[in-house]
Amino acid sequence: MWTQADYIKAYRFAAERHNGQKYPGTDLPYITHLSFVCMEVIAALRVSQVESETVAIQCALLHDVIEDTATTYAEVKQEFGAEVANGVMALTKSAALDKPLQMPDSLRRLKQQPAAVQMVKLADRISNLQAPPAHWTTAKMTAYREEAIVIHAALKGANRYLADRLQQKITDYQQWLA
C-alpha cells in the first residue's frame, strides 16, 4: 500500500529535477505532466490490485527523470531503491538508439518489469493523448496514435482499467486526424 510520504518524496524529487522545464506546448511546469500520469495510476489502483503500489506511484512521478534531466540511475536507486530505479530505467527511451528503435526497445524492457511499472507507460500515453500541439503535422499525429496502439497491444495485460482508458483515448484521438 502506498502512502502520502511515498508520493511526496517522489513528487519533491521529480519537481526539483524537472525544475524550469515546461510541459511541451504550454507554459505549465513539467511536474504537471507527472501529476497527470500519477493521477491515472492512482485511479487505476482504486479499482484494481497491483503487486507494489508504491513502485507504481513513484515510477509514475519519476518516469522521465533519467530521460529528461541529468539524474542518473544510481541517484534514483539510492533514493528509491532498485525496484523503482529499474522501473524508471525501463520507462526511459535509450538515446543510444535511433528514434524508430527506441519505443520497441523500451517496450521489450517494460515487459520484463512488474505490472506496477508497465501500467505507468499506459498512464503516460493516456496523459499524452490530449489535443496535439498546434505545430504537429497530420503525419506526426498519425504516427503518435499508431505508437499508442503498439503500446496498448504490448502492455494491455498490465492493468485492464488503464488499458480500457488508453483504448478510449486512442479512439478519441481520431478527431484530431479528421
Score class of each variant (00 low, 15 high):
residue 33 H to P: 10
residue 34 L to G: 04
residue 34 L to R: 06
residue 35 S to I: 09
residue 35 S to V: 10
residue 35 S to R: 15
residue 36 F to E: 10
residue 38 C to E: 14
residue 38 C to S: 12
residue 38 C to D: 10
residue 40 E to I: 03
residue 40 E to F: 11
residue 41 V to L: 03
residue 41 V to R: 05
residue 42 I to E: 11
residue 43 A to S: 11
residue 44 A to F: 00
residue 44 A to N: 02
residue 44 A to V: 01
residue 45 L to N: 10
residue 45 L to A: 02
residue 46 R to H: 15
residue 48 S to D: 11
residue 48 S to C: 09
residue 49 Q to S: 15
residue 49 Q to K: 15
residue 49 Q to G: 14
residue 49 Q to I: 12
residue 50 V to R: 07
residue 52 S to W: 08
residue 54 T to G: 04
residue 54 T to N: 03
residue 56 A to F: 02
residue 57 I to D: 02
residue 57 I to M: 01
residue 58 Q to C: 02
residue 58 Q to H: 08
residue 60 A to P: 03
residue 61 L to Q: 05
residue 63 H to A: 00
residue 63 H to N: 03
residue 63 H to V: 06
residue 64 D to C: 08
residue 64 D to A: 10
residue 65 V to L: 06
residue 65 V to I: 15
residue 66 I to D: 03
residue 66 I to C: 02
residue 66 I to L: 04
residue 66 I to A: 02
residue 67 E to C: 04
residue 67 E to D: 14
residue 67 E to G: 07
residue 67 E to V: 08
residue 68 D to P: 02
residue 69 T to I: 06
residue 69 T to M: 01
residue 69 T to D: 00
residue 70 A to W: 11
residue 71 T to N: 01
residue 71 T to D: 02
residue 72 T to R: 08
residue 73 Y to Q: 07
residue 73 Y to T: 07
residue 73 Y to N: 02
residue 73 Y to I: 03
residue 73 Y to K: 03
residue 74 A to P: 06
residue 74 A to Y: 10
residue 76 V to M: 00
residue 76 V to F: 01
residue 77 K to H: 15
residue 78 Q to D: 15
residue 79 E to N: 09
residue 80 F to T: 06
residue 80 F to L: 00
residue 81 G to D: 06
residue 82 A to W: 15
residue 82 A to P: 08
residue 83 E to L: 14
residue 83 E to K: 15
residue 84 V to F: 12
residue 84 V to T: 12
residue 84 V to W: 06
residue 86 N to C: 10
residue 86 N to R: 11
residue 88 V to R: 05
residue 89 M to E: 13
residue 89 M to K: 13
residue 90 A to W: 01
residue 90 A to S: 05
residue 90 A to G: 09
residue 91 L to H: 09
residue 92 T to W: 08
residue 94 S to M: 09
residue 94 S to I: 13
